[in-house]
Write a protein that binds this DNA or RNA. Structure first.
Lengths: 217, 217
DNA sequence: CCAGAATTCAAACGGTCGTTTGCTTTAAAC
DNA sequence: GTTTAAAGCAAACGACCGTTTGAATTCTGG
């Protein structure tokens, strides 16, 4: 008996959706292919989720909430450890990056989801607005903490650098096959802790880079 | 008379496709919406491009070739200026990053295309394989040049860091609206030269970061 | 001016999509 | 055992998709 045989219909649908959405994109995944993969009836999607749009929200929502809860828990720890002083930069990076990249190893279904997360900014799907709202607290508290850790950066420069950081994180989360091919198999994306370590080192140095004057036009 | 009225049908189709593919994604853009936007007949797409897939290739191909030619020209300049020594890191970054981000200002149509480029790794479209092949020379020569500029990095570490760099670049190229919203309008993505300068500073520091030992499991 | 090629066009084709319907089966409560 | 709701199912609906057709139109060289 495979694991999916023991789960109920709604779970089977969500997990098949996660796999197929990640592999082929949301728009290119039909409900018929999806329900075939899940081994359930076509109409079950609308019975349990109301519509394909509802299913998409459910797929994202299931992972995003625990991810951000863990991030904020680690951020609380950072700030508690720092007391009245500024939090340590590398701890902040670990709190922001670690839970995201570890999603792909904690569960075997984590990897397809991270591939979907990497695509969340690319898929121009209106149904993702409520999902994005779940990032509000993260988007508010982390920049403020980074500003305290990097007081010499003005706000605009900090925002740009966090933007660059987010790009690296999303690209790493969603594109494990890319680094593998680019390095001809010499880089191992399955080494999650090593990847987190590398990304924190790289990004920490980038965030701490001295600000040079902008070149005149 | 609008500019598009003066162009022939194939150009009008390509430009409408670039806009709509960038705005809504390839799969979600129907040929009917596309030909309405272009002001041409539906069957013109198949007459000029054979199929929707052929149109997608044409849209990418038109921009990718000049982009990579400019990158390689600047790389040649870097290597000529360096003589027998290692090329300068910041010049390499300018050669790789500059032409990509400048695409969005050289032409008014450049911005939607960069949005498409940022999505090239996300859109799991089989028809993009020939487009990806146009990156072969860039993918071969730039890592080798970076390795010469950063001899203290082992190959695996370098590949990871170039992977992170690529993520920042793609995210910046394709997501101008994201940084604008994240910074509440205080960051200006239209300042292309400033953005290039910031990304080069950030990324240069990240690439030069000292390699620390990987944490034991 | 005219033949012949290139291009444009309205209309339709077959197929697949998300969604809905009405019926049957399963499960729980009394 | 009967009642009532939840869940599953096959079949169909209308809409929209990419593509094709064949005739009308425009362009081009002699």
């Amino acid at each position: 008996m495979t694991p999916s045989d023991t789960k109920d219909t709604a779970d089977r649908i969500i997990e098949a959706a996660e796999r197929l959405f990640a592999r082929h994109g949301i728009a290119r995944t039909s409900l018929r292919a999806l329900t075939d993969e899940a081994g359930v009836n076509l109409a079950a999607v609308h019975y349990h989720f109301g519509s394909k749009e509802g299913l998409v929200s459910a797929v994202y929502g299931r992972r995003v909430q625990p991810l951000n809860a863990e991030r904020l828990r680690l951020l609380d720890e950072c700030e508690a450890a720092a007391g009245d002083g500024p939090p340590e930069l590398e701890s902040l990076l670990e709190a922001f990056i670690g839970p995201a990249l570890r999603l792909r190893q904690n569960r075997s279904q984590g990897e397809p989801f991270m591939c979907l997360m990497g695509r969340i900014y690319s898929e121009p799907a209106r149904e993702l607005a409520p999902v994005m709202a779940q990032f509000d607290e993260v988007r508010q508290r982390f920049p403020a903490a980074f500003q305290r850790a990097l007081p010499e950066l003005d706000e605009v420069e900090l925002m740009w650098r966090l933007h660059f950081l987010l790009g690296s994180l999303m690209h790493t989360a969603g594109g494990s096959h890319l680094i593998e091919r680019m390095s001809h198999g010499r880089c191992d994306p399955a080494d999650v802790e090593g990847t987190i370590h590398r990304l924190i080192s790289y990004t920490g140095a980038g965030l701490r880079a001295s600000v040079k004057e902008t070149a005149a036009p």
